[in-house]
Design a protein around this nucleic acid. Structure first.
Lengths: 281, 281
DNA sequence: CATATGTTTCTTATGTATAAAAAACGGGGG
DNA sequence: CCCCCGTTTTTTATACATAAGAAACATATG
């Protein structure tokens, strides 16, 4: 809301609650609550049927990040930190109540998180007896990449069969541009790669949608997002190599030559796997 | 406990609490509670340091099935019924509170169930806005089988590379025997196939363990278990065909001929897919 | 001293209550 | 009749409370 107001002038009238609702992607109830808050702080004046901007909100008026995050998201972050900081070794038993205490949240939320987190294959539930952390181990990485290879090779191959008119070719073009841009400025922006990587692989996978493959992408994204947040070693070099491999794969895809595609794809996945294994050991 | 007592004579002494605990696979707390119940009903007499059987428990003494099932399991059954009875069509919005009311359980449990159930790909969560049932549709079946084919072909191929001395060859032998037995008595026992099917596919998959593949087996097992519980059409014939296909695959595996294995595996999966599609339409 | 049972403590499983957000309802003005 | 806003209802998100089960500790007995 602050961002919206900053595009308007002092004394201007705010859009209707419904317009704001649509723009912000939340319910009108929430919009009204925020408006009430701004009214109370003197940022806007609520008259009958309209609201006038009285003064520009300052940046420090923003709610602190922590207050705007759902508790469930905070739990996710806390848990990942706990796991990747190395407090946990393979076989560690996970205690719902203890985690809840440690993170300062209700047990219900921890429990719900663990249930959702189960799909990543890092923890396992035992009836009436809590959870076991299986460890972020080499075998985890190997199993992950075995599936990843099957899925991505499948999608990459399906790419070659796409008609010339398909809009994905445009998307691939702009994907290449994004990679080249990042590569040109790699020293400063190497940390932006993680997000580009995820987008690239999702684009390839999306040619022939399959809900199970898409769901597996979440696993991969989680692993890379969090793992490399705690393992910065060689990050710049690692990402540079990956970008070049992506560019090679893009070229192969555009050639429509299955053998070429297979090779580029496998090359990239092998290198990504080795990098991950290396960083675990 | 009733089953254990029935193997003993009147007046005999029960094993120690610890022995019972180990035998029943529960905690001693639970054993003690059951023993207290039996004492109250006059089935056993608790003396200092031992318990004597006073009269044989009758079958109706057993707790009704419903009381021994965890609420979470009851919710699963209720939900499957709701879904497969056809009360829900694709796109139906799922309401936690309403389901809880309908099933007569707490909302927490329904919520937890939906979270776990998510992995089956039949429902989807929308932030702050409940769940959507995506439907037990043809595209669900197709996506399911696309993955299943990848996974099973992979496992079947790895089979051929196993050394002669591997214990799986014995297991395959007894698997064949189980199939032949069932086939011989197919008219009476065709409903036993579902469980054998799951065991067979899990055996094949288990040659090279991968947690993601194993987790996917749960999806398949769920689909077949529940779907065919509500779609009995052609059940006998369907299962007979599948048994024969299994036998062919077993033979192919034992031949160690990759081409043969591939063919038998694909044949079976194709036929299973068509059967499922047919039963959905 | 080893094993069995009595007792206590702690954990997970389930139920209930409240807060936050979304959706529905309804009157009023253009 | 349509859009806007005030209000009410409903739903999800989170916290807290209790019951069932597991594990640990303590005591007794041969």
């Amino acid at each position: 809301m602050i961002d919206i107001i900053r595009t308007l002038d002092l004394g201007a009238e705010l859009p209707s609650e419904n317009a704001l609702r649509a723009q912000l992607g939340v319910s009108r109830t929430t919009v009204r609550k925020v408006l009430a808050g701004m009214s109370a702080r003197g940022i806007i004046i609520s008259e009958a049927h309209r609201r006038i901007i009285r003064e520009q909100p300052r940046q420090k008026e923003r709610y602190p990040k922590k207050e705007t995050l759902a508790i469930s998201e905070q739990v996710e972050t806390s848990f990942m930190e706990w796991m990747l900081r190395g407090d946990a070794c393979p076989g560690t038993e996970i205690n719902e109540a203890e985690l809840a205490r440690k993170f300062g949240v209700a047990t219900t939320i921890v429990r719900e998180f663990l249930n959702r987190f189960q799909k990543y294959g890092l923890i396992e539930k035992r009836q009436n007896a809590g959870w076991v952390f299986k460890g972020f181990t080499a075998s985890f990485a190997l199993e992950l990449f075995e599936i990843r290879e099957m899925f991505e090779m499948r999608s990459a191959r399906l790419f070659a069969a796409l008609p010339d008119g398909s809009p994905v070719w445009k998307q691939i073009q702009s994907m290449r541009a994004a990679h080249l841009e990042l590569l040109a400025d790699i020293d400063a922006r190497f940390q932006d790669f993680s997000e580009l990587d995820s987008r690239f692989h999702r684009l390839i996978t999306a040619v022939a949608p399959n809900r199970f493959i898409e769901s597996f992408q979440d696993v991969i994204a989680m692993v890379f997002h969090y793992h490399y947040q705690w393992n910065k070693r060689d990050e710049r070099a690692r990402n540079e190599v990956a970008i070049k491999e992506h560019l090679a794969l893009i070229e192969a895809l555009e050639s429509r030559n299955i053998a070429l595609i297979d090779r580029a794809c496998r090359l990239h996945l092998t290198s990504a796997r080795e990098t991950l294994l290396h960083s675990i050991a």
